[in-house]
Structures are given as structure tokens and as C-alpha cells.
Amino acid sequence: MSEPVLIGSGMTGGYGAADILHDCTIAVEKGRISVIVGPNGAGKSTAMKAVFGMLPLRQGAVRLDGHDITGLSPQDRVAQGMAFVPQTRNIFPSMTVEENLEMGAFLRRDDIAGTMEEVYHLFPILAEKRHQPTGELSGGQRQQVAVGRALMTRPRILMLDEPTAGVSPIVMDELFDRIIEVARTGISILMVEQNARQALEIADTGYVLVQGRNAYTGSGAELLADPEVRRSFLGG
């Protein structure tokens, strides 16, 4: 089998002297959705940040298309086709929807109009509110802006840290539907999600982390069917 488009293998590292990740491996295939779940404090967001270069590794490596990018800065990883949407502070609230999307294309030197229309097609409500300050939008709409801005970079890898945090179940389902649509265009999705059951339902691959280690790995369907995973992490 060919190597995944993105893989963080054997990652060990943390903040200061304490390691949070312990020999953790996370990967995503081209055009597929990989989801990281686990209890609070399991190291889910830390694993995401390590893959994106926001956390120095003491051991392990990150490879993109088979090339070692462990030493690259997050900015350089963006230039290589990775986009990261943090859980909080992921929009410019005083700027309009359209201005936020334009900021997402800051590295591009080509015409961005086509990509912007693709984002508006994916999130029609943003087209309606394109001239409205983003800070006036609902929580779910702000998340759409954050994802849309990341898509403006035309990434190969879209990384989402808790994209449904604080939104209603209806909005969560809509966001997950849009994430599936993005993956169908060939963009790989790596996502940390607290709503484990719903996330695993859309996942091609799921990673259950416990104390910074891989506890369970499998397809979303396999993990949902695993009695131990269901009992320990999904409420039975």
C-alpha cells in the first residue's frame, strides 16, 4: 500500500519538560476523513498541533507526500498545502465575511474569484451575508467562515480542531455534511472532535487517544462497533 498523504508517526513531545504525546501516530489518506477522538486531556488537539508544526517533537516525524516536513514551520506547511482551523479565535470579527475569505488567500498570486464562489456554493448563507461583519454571525456561521477561509488557500490537507464546539446538533450535522463534501473534492480532512460518535460516523479512519497514546485505531464503522470503544468512550 502507498503511504498516506500525511502522516505523523511515532510522535513524542509536549510543552516544556513534560511529554503529552507518547509514540502517537496519526495519518490521513487522500480525499479521506481521519478523526481523532478521546477523553478530555487525551492529547487530541496536541496531536493536531504536532502534525501542523506548532509543537516541537522530541521523537517521531511528520511526512507529507512522502517528504519529511518535521522541521518546517506552520507557515511553510501552509505553503506546502496544509490548512489549519483552530477551535477558537479563528475569524476576524470586525471584518466582513468576504474580507475574511480574502485574508485566507493571502499567499496566492492568482485569481481567487473562482475559489470564493466555490466557498459560497458550499456555504450559501455566507454568500447572503458576504458584506456583514463576521462578529455579528451565529456560532455555526462563524465556523463556516473559518472553514471557508482555510479553503481559500486551496489546501490539500484541511485540519479542523473541534469544528462543532458550541454549536447546536442541527448545525453540527450541517457542518459534518459540508466536511464530507469537501473530502469528495479530493481534499484530505484531519479533524479533532469532541462529539465522538457523530464524528466516527463520517470517518474513514478513527484514532482514539488516551493519555497521548494510540488506544484504538480503525475505520469509523469498526470503532463504532467495538464494544470496548463504545463502553469507554461513546457512552455504551
Rank of each mutant, 00 (worst) to 15 (best):
D111F: 01
A18C: 09
V85S: 07
G114E: 12
T96G: 09
G41C: 15
G140T: 05
N40T: 08
L64Y: 06
T70Q: 14
P56T: 05
G148H: 06
P4E: 02
A27S: 07
A105W: 02
F106A: 07
G140I: 05
H131I: 01
L107D: 03
I69V: 14
G31E: 03
A83H: 08
D110A: 01
G16A: 06
G43E: 09
P86K: 09
V119S: 12
F106S: 05
N100S: 07
A47K: 04
E98R: 15
L72A: 11
I26P: 03
D68F: 10
G14M: 08
T70K: 15
S34L: 02
G114M: 08
V5N: 00
S94L: 13
G43D: 10
E128I: 01
E118S: 09
M82I: 03
M103E: 01
Q144W: 10
T115W: 13
F52E: 09
K30P: 01
G13I: 00
A105N: 03
H67F: 07
H121Q: 04
L64R: 01
E117A: 07
K49F: 04
T46K: 14
N100L: 04
G53Y: 03
K30Y: 01
F123M: 02
G140E: 10
L101M: 15
G16K: 09
S94N: 13
P4L: 02
M11Q: 08
F92D: 11
R142Q: 15
V62H: 10
A17C: 04
R89K: 13
A146T: 02
L137M: 15
V51G: 11
